[in-house]
Every structure is written in C-alpha cells, then in structure tokens.
Measured scan of single mutants.
Amino acid sequence: EVRVRALYDYEGQEHDELSFKAGDELTKMEDEDEQGWCKGRLDNGQVGLYPANYVEAIQ
C-alpha cells in the first residue's frame, strides 16, 4: 500500500468511485488497471476507485 495525495478535486460518478478534494491524502491499495483506475481507501475507511492521474505518491 502506498500513501498518495490528490492533485485535483474528484467527484465520484459511480457508487464504486471515491470522491476527494485536492490535497486530500489516501491509501492506494492496488495499482492502476488498463483503464487508468486505481483502488484506494480514504482515511474514513471508504474503499473505491479513482483516476490514477489525479494523485501523486507522497515521498
């Protein structure tokens, strides 16, 4: 698992997508798939998908 930080706001479009604001931190659980989606977990425990290019790894 990798900690990542959102670069942009994202509003989930489907029930299985996460929503977050730029600057939020979350945990990447799985690497992106061929469509460019990652599985992650918000700090509130919600698990879902998000676009991989909306986040950067925290060093």
Score class of each variant (00 low, 15 high):
1 E>N: 05
1 E>A: 04
1 E>L: 03
1 E>R: 03
1 E>Y: 03
2 V>R: 14
2 V>N: 14
2 V>C: 07
2 V>L: 08
2 V>K: 14
3 R>F: 00
3 R>A: 03
4 V>T: 03
4 V>A: 03
4 V>S: 05
4 V>Y: 12
5 R>Y: 07
5 R>T: 12
5 R>H: 07
5 R>P: 00
5 R>M: 12
6 A>C: 06
7 L>Q: 06
7 L>F: 04
7 L>W: 01
7 L>E: 03
7 L>S: 06
8 Y>Q: 14
8 Y>K: 07
8 Y>R: 04
9 D>C: 15
9 D>T: 12
10 Y>H: 07
10 Y>N: 10
10 Y>P: 02
10 Y>C: 06
11 E>H: 06
11 E>W: 05
11 E>Y: 11
11 E>G: 07
11 E>I: 13
11 E>M: 04
12 G>N: 10
12 G>V: 02
12 G>W: 01
12 G>H: 07
13 Q>E: 10
13 Q>F: 03
13 Q>R: 08
14 E>V: 07
14 E>C: 07
14 E>M: 07
14 E>I: 09
14 E>N: 11
14 E>L: 13
15 H>N: 14
15 H>E: 10
15 H>T: 11
16 D>Q: 11
16 D>V: 14
17 E>V: 15
17 E>K: 08
17 E>I: 08
18 L>D: 01
18 L>M: 04
18 L>Q: 01
18 L>N: 02
18 L>E: 02
19 S>W: 07
19 S>D: 05
19 S>I: 05
19 S>Y: 08
20 F>L: 09
20 F>N: 01
20 F>W: 00
20 F>D: 01
21 K>T: 13
21 K>I: 09
22 A>P: 03
22 A>F: 09
23 G>R: 05
23 G>Q: 04
24 D>W: 07
24 D>L: 06
24 D>K: 00
24 D>G: 03
24 D>C: 11
24 D>M: 13
25 E>F: 11
25 E>N: 10
25 E>Q: 08
25 E>P: 06
25 E>R: 12
25 E>M: 15
25 E>Y: 15
26 L>W: 13
26 L>I: 14
26 L>N: 01
26 L>V: 10
27 T>E: 10
27 T>D: 04
27 T>K: 04
27 T>R: 05
27 T>M: 10
28 K>G: 05
28 K>P: 05
28 K>W: 12
29 M>W: 05
29 M>A: 08
29 M>H: 06
30 E>W: 13
30 E>Y: 15
30 E>L: 06
30 E>H: 06
30 E>T: 12
31 D>G: 14
31 D>V: 11
31 D>N: 11
31 D>E: 09
32 E>M: 13
32 E>S: 10
32 E>T: 14
32 E>N: 06
32 E>C: 11
33 D>M: 10
33 D>C: 11
33 D>T: 14
33 D>S: 13
33 D>I: 11
34 E>P: 02
34 E>T: 06
34 E>V: 10
34 E>R: 07
35 Q>F: 07
35 Q>M: 14
35 Q>A: 09
35 Q>I: 13
36 G>S: 06
36 G>Q: 04
36 G>L: 09
36 G>F: 06
37 W>V: 09
37 W>Q: 07
37 W>Y: 00
38 C>T: 07
38 C>Q: 15
38 C>H: 07
38 C>V: 11
38 C>M: 07
39 K>N: 07
39 K>V: 14
39 K>C: 09
39 K>S: 07
40 G>Q: 01
40 G>V: 00
41 R>M: 09
42 L>Y: 00
42 L>H: 11
42 L>P: 02
42 L>F: 04
43 D>T: 08
43 D>S: 10
43 D>Y: 05
44 N>D: 08
44 N>L: 02
44 N>V: 04
44 N>K: 05
45 G>R: 03
46 Q>F: 09
46 Q>V: 11
46 Q>W: 09
47 V>N: 06
47 V>Y: 13
47 V>W: 04
47 V>H: 15
47 V>C: 08
47 V>S: 13
48 G>F: 00
48 G>S: 01
48 G>P: 00
49 L>F: 15
49 L>S: 15
50 Y>Q: 00
50 Y>E: 00
50 Y>R: 01
50 Y>A: 05
51 P>F: 04
51 P>C: 08
51 P>V: 03
52 A>V: 10
52 A>L: 07
52 A>F: 11
53 N>F: 07
53 N>Q: 15
53 N>I: 15
53 N>Y: 09
54 Y>N: 12
54 Y>C: 09
54 Y>D: 05
55 V>Q: 02
56 E>T: 13
56 E>L: 06
56 E>Q: 09
56 E>Y: 05
57 A>C: 14
57 A>P: 15
57 A>W: 12
57 A>Y: 15
57 A>F: 09
57 A>S: 11
57 A>M: 11
58 I>N: 06
58 I>Q: 05
58 I>A: 15
58 I>Y: 05
58 I>T: 04
59 Q>H: 13
59 Q>T: 11
